[in-house]
Design a protein around this nucleic acid. Structure first.
Lengths: 232, 232
DNA sequence: CAGTGGTCTAGACCACGAT
DNA sequence: TCGTGGTCTAGACCACTGG
């Protein structure tokens, strides 16, 4: 059996035997290297595989930790992040990173003919579960429709703010979901290396007239989320 | 700028400038190493990041290739894989790997109280798009309900076989979707290294009486699929 | 059989985190 | 300040692919 596989198995064992609990730190890479009389390259090979598996995760320059349970999410339902998290036994938190007025370039390039030529709000937030940052959210909506949005309590539910302060109701939504990697900026916020894999959910939400209300990008750590979809 | 980032950018450029087309081979690792006066470790660091990004993919011991377009899939719709692929301009293919009668151990462990104690068919197939293997499918259904299933044309649509040969109609389904890695067996079939990341779709399908008809695991190469979900 | 990717060794320096 | 993870060098051997 390959050496990195033996290291993988060893850590699998540690977790199965409950010798290490969720979010606690693994032995350092150099400790493992010594333990297996190997090199850091090989140790890291094993760690990266376990990370892909979702068993452990790294935080930039802090170390490797055991992955906690995943949040179960129905991507096309209007369920509130906070409520969902609490229901599943997590302590959720939301932090506002920024709210900008100009149109993001990447946004313009990637999606044409959406709010074309209009001034937009761009709200960037980070979501945490039990103090672990797990998701970046970029929300784009029309400035003209949501005047003074920057003065609202933006760490609360945007859907709720839209309903109560602007009388705008979300009626339907479309999601596109794929696997990709975090941008440099977002990986910093999530305390990950750049290039960390993530699940990207692009979400368009519409009001009862079929008008586009907002346009969101969500970037989830791949090991923090599980999606449920029902169909007929 | 970091060296592996320069290598990433270089390959990004190659693809953007259309100097390399989808499914063609990249220069060998040693060629790139020489070109950037670096080492294979660093070159491979860059290649793995591009792979996570979905820009390139590797086939075991064959090399690195440019990733073609993704298949767009509505996970909870009953649309046939072949039809979907053709609609999107792919040439689809399905190969039967095996059909077994005993109950798979992993299946038993992972999912309790599904078809408990019953004899099952376990059909394993691989799906290809334009000759590239992109998905492994494990289908479990009751032997008693689908007698002599092994004699049918199993590279065709199972839904269709169930409807025409057994008068069983699929009425609804539930999916669970998460990111994980391929097993050793499956990664061989998909010509990937073990530990390759993938999108796993667990799919339960029910008939019009709400009875479970079959239970599927799909393992998609993460760069081969994009999912569309609509909700109200 | 030559060249490729997969695995592995034995080091090094740096930036950043924890203390 | 010390230890950590992030990046990088300069090699090696093996199994397998493709010609």
């Amino acid at each position: 059996m390959l050496l990195y596989q033996r290291i993988c198995n060893y850590i699998h064992q540690l977790i199965n035997d409950n010798k290490i609990k969720a979010t606690t730190k693994l032995p350092s890479e150099r400790t493992l290297q010594e333990q297996f009389k190997s090199t850091r390259i090989t140790v890291r090979e094993a760690l990266f595989r376990l990370e892909s598996e979702g068993l452990i995760y790294s935080q930039k320059r802090k170390g490797w930790f055991i992955t906690p349970a995943k949040l179960k999410l129905k991507p096309a339902s209007k369920v509130n992040f906070n409520k969902l998290a609490v229901e599943q036994g997590f302590v959720p938190k939301t932090r506002v990173i920024s709210i900008l007025n100009d149109i993001d370039d990447s946004f313009q390039n990637q999606e044409k003919n959406i709010f074309t030529g209009e001034s937009l709000y761009h709200l960037k937030r980070v979501r945490l579960l039990d103090e672990r940052p797990v998701m970046i959210e970029d929300i784009y909506c029309q400035q003209s429709r949501f005047e003074n949005l920057e003065r609202k309590a933006l760490s609360e539910s945007i859907t709720h703010i839209m309903a109560t302060d602007y009388n705008v109701q979300i009626n339907s939504e479309q999601c596109v979901i794929c696997v990709t990697v975090l941008s440099n900026e977002d990986s910093d916020i999530l305390e990950k290396n750049s290039g960390a894999p993530c699940l990207k959910i692009i979400r368009k939400r519409f009001d009862e007239h079929g008008l586009l209300v907002d346009y969101n990008y969500e970037y989830w750590l791949h090991d923090a989320i599980e999606m449920l979809v029902e169909g007929t």
